[in-house]
Amino acid sequence: MNAPGITEPTEAIARARAGDAEAWGELYRDYAPAIFRFCRRALPTREDAEDATMEIFMKLKAKLVQYDATRSFSAWLYKVSANHCWDMLRRRKIRQDKETDDLENVPLEHPDPGQLERLIEQRTSAEVRKALDKLGGRARMALVMRYYSDMSYDEIADALGVRRAFVGVVLLRARHELRQALEGNAALAAGGTS
């Protein structure tokens, strides 16, 4: 789970921990683009993403001592980023009450596979990104954590403050929201067969 094309920067981390500004700059240059994209996907506006990226890196400076060098640096970095973004969203009360209701009523049905297949075939990456903007905070956050930074269910549960058992529910609900945004097809989004 590295930032694309980057191997674990063990030496740079050790130097940055010791206060080496150059090493810190190295880490920033290598990871800032990935973290910015993470924030860009997770947060509503570009400005939010820029602010969050800077704040995450400032936070990292202080938190770097807590990093366990035996584990993946980028995984840890994404975890810190996810916590930061989710906190940001929570502070703005973007998480709506509606989202909590959704979890209780996930339909366990079998949607029309053909219809879903057609929808996926017809949509481009750009359209998916645009649709992401229409999602609720938690749904969006869950999708970004899972499909951008490849975080585990445990990590997602921890970041979102839900039980691990419900991470799948959150993700499925998020997919439904996304399909709805892509198609405007309530029936499909609800997961029901026609």
């Binding site: 209780e104 979102l160 403050g161 058992a165």
Partner: peptide
């Protein structure tokens, strides 16, 4: 975050 634990939906196998 404050832990949020909604009830488990029926017939769902998770974990």
């Amino acid at each position: 975050s404050a832990p949020y634990s909604p009830p488990l939906p029926p017939n769902t196998t998770v974990g």
